[in-house]
Design a protein around this nucleic acid. Structure first.
Length: 580
RNA sequence: GGCCCCGUAGCUCAGGGGAUAGAGCGACCGCCUCCUAAGCGGUAGGUCACAGGUUCGAAUCCUGUCGGGGCCGCCA
């Protein structure tokens, strides 16, 4: 139930009538006609720009169109008044019954209230995290994980068929480095002193891996050439790292549908397959690249390599897929992986990447565009940096060699709910400050707390009512006589609730889960405001002497609670029943 | 040199063609005999970086400039 969509449909229907009656010319494009909350609530409940948008194509002054439309809209029982204002806005005031309908719908539909079908079942693959299996997840991964998970949930709520996917980079040189690093820890476990050379991973987290290797292989891998143990140690250590990463994700409450291995993709011959497909399109050639502009690498020399003609698909320069020695570049498995995703039948791909991958976006888009013949759009969401703060100053990485602020560090200090909510209070392409002090503060300065508190207050009201012998379960509330609602402060909250389905669609279209967080803050604010009105005017309190009146008022509160609960659900945050 | 992101109140940030640009913090003034005051109401605070352009209408779209950040050969 989306009241804004319903009123927009009404507006369009009346405009069509005007066309049919000759009041407007035929062939008008109504796509730009919008029905929105006005910026200033004093103007009305909803406003439409229809007259201004149609004035030019219709060849009529906007106010004339608006007046004709107003007369037709005013006849509808849902519309109380329709007034022309300003340059041609049509301000609508809705009958209180419309708002009561919203409350009823929220109670009847529960956490499904606000679900949308704008996604029309489109199959979307959201790839996120994809941290290299060489160590624990750090803060940057955390934000990407939270964002990707919330985006996936949002798209699902808006009617897309979503797959959450993790790409395991287990095929590059970095996992050989991991293997060598783990091997040193294995030697250490066997009583030898490890030689953590420059370039190896020095982190303590590999010590247990070394011990596990000892438990499995005893001393049988000692004093053997690397060629004898590299593959086995690599596979073992990679599996250990992935288990650690899965544990970290579980700690955050992030769930993946699919893990795809780079190694498996490579072994299956998909790289060759994808490259040959591109070659068949005339997009692969042998050539040399211009040296990069700006500061030239010291050892730059022109060499011939195998190149992908990504410039034909919007990139700035062509990109190497093979090094001059004939081996694949890092880009090649990525081509194969995206080819794999395209061939699995997704209608849309989303990659959530760190901002340092900014230079990589165009070539990925070029590949997907080429390999899907333009059928599958790829969106790349770049996640900007997280700056950690503690005690009023930047929180530096630990100086202990090889350690950094991990996902586990953050979640264990702040908790998963706080971590998730805070990381979703900024759009993905803006840097985020994460202040451990503020984030744990229990005041309205802390949006997580503020929203949680609103939900807890709703639960509290229901508890109080139940104690007083007033039935306040959802089924009873859904049948409450909402004619008892009518005060301006109550309708204001209902109006905000009515915006939820619209907000979901806006957020989903823009792929902007942060809008959910901001909306929830506003909704919580309206609930707190109404609550406090009850302090001044007893008739606005939720729990009343009269059972029927109480149930109507609690129904409104519960409707807000349901929306908070649904919204927090998208963000992956647990709603609080009480504040402790 | 090129590409991407950012620039809105003292601070942190929403808003991304529509009316008088919003919120929180900080400042100031108020509100608990009463469902959680962990809250609420009010006052003060703005050249939406700058300059052009498109439009009936620009903080929003386009171009350019300035400032901040990120990235830029066969590293992953």
């Amino acid at each position: 139930m989306n009241l804004f969509a319903e009123i927009r449909a009404l507006v369009i229907a009346r405009l069509e009538e005007m066309v049919a009656s000759g009041a407007l010319p035929g062939g008008l494009d109504m796509a730009a006609v919008a029905v929105e909350p006005p910026r200033d609530g004093a103007h009305g409940d909803m406003a439409t720009n229809a007259a201004m948008v149609l004035a030019r194509p219709a060849g009529q002054p906007p106010r004339a169109i608006a007046e004709g439309l107003a007369a037709r809209l005013a006849a509808d029982p849902r519309i109380l008044t329709a007034e022309v204002a300003g340059p041609g806005f049509l301000n609508l005031r809705l009958a209180p019954e419309s708002w009561r309908g919203v409350v009823r719908a929220a109670l009847a539909e529960g956490r499904d209230f606000g679900r949308s079908d704008i996604g029309r079942g489109v199959r979307v693959n959201v790839e996120f995290v994809s941290a290299n299996p060489t160590g624990p997840m750090h803060v940057g991964h955390t934000r990407g994980a939270v964002f990707g998970d919330a985006l996936a949930a949002l798209l699902d709520f808006a009617g897309h068929a979503v797959t959450r996917e993790y790409y395991i980079n287990d095929g590059g040189a970095q996992v050989d480095v991991l293997a060598r690093s783990a091997y040193e820890r294995y030697r250490e476990a066997n009583g030898l002193s490890p030689e953590i050379a420059e370039g190896l991973y020095p982190g303590d987290y590999l010590i247990p891996v070394g011990e596990a290797l000892k438990a499995r292989y005893g001393d049988s891998l000692l004093d053997r050439p690397e060629a004898d143990w590299l593959a086995e140690v690599r596979d073992f250590a990679t599996a250990e790292m992935m288990q650690m990463i899965r544990d970290d994700l579980a700690l955050l409450g992030v769930r993946m549908d699919v893990f795809t291995s780079e190694k498996a993709i490579t072994a299956s011959g998909k790289i060759e397959e994808a490259i040959e497909t591109l070659r068949g399109m005339g997009l692969i050639y042998e050539g040399t690249l211009e040296p990069p502009k700006g500061k030239l690498p010291e050892d730059w020399e022109e060499r011939e390599q195998t190149l992908f003609r990504s410039t034909l698909h919007g990139d700035d320069v062509d990109r190497p897929v093979k090094k001059s020695d004939g081996s694949w570049t890092y880009f090649a498995p990525d081509i194969a992986y995206h080819w794999d995703k395209v061939s699995r039948g997704f209608d849309q791909l989303i990659d959530v990447l760190g901002a340092d991958h900014g230079g990589y976006v165009k070539r990925l888009k070029a590949v997907v565009s080429a390999l899907s013949s333009g059928r599958v759009p790829l969106e790349v969401k770049l996640i900007q940096l997280v700056k950690l703060w503690k005690n009023g100053e930047p929180f530096k990485m630990s100086k202990r060699a090889g350690t950094f602020v991990t996902l586990r560090d953050v979640v264990e200090q702040a908790g998963p709910d706080v971590t998730r909510f805070v990381m979703l209070t900024r759009k993905n392409d803006a840097a985020l400050d994460f202040d451990f002090d503020k984030v744990l503060e229990q005041s309205k300065d802390n949006p997580v707390f503020y929203v949680q508190y609103a939900h807890a207050r709703v639960s509290s009201v229901i508890r109080k009512a139940t104690e007083a012998g007033i039935a306040a379960d959802d089924a009873t509330l859904a049948g409450a006589d909402l004619d008892h609602l009518g005060h301006e402060a109550e309708l204001a909250l209902a109006r905000k609730i009515a915006e939820w389905p619209r907000l979901v669609e806006i957020a989903a279209r823009g792929q902007e889960p942060h809008r959910i967080a901001f909306y929830l803050y506003e909704l919580a604010s309206d609930l707190h405001a109404l609550w406090n009105r009850g302090n001044e005017d007893g008739s606005l309190r939720f729990v009343q002497e009269d059972k029927g009146i109480s149930q109507a008022k609690i129904a409104l509160a519960r409707a807000a609670g349901v929306v908070i609960s649904a919204g927090l659900g998208i963000l992956g945050v647990t709603p609080a029943e009480e504040m402790r």
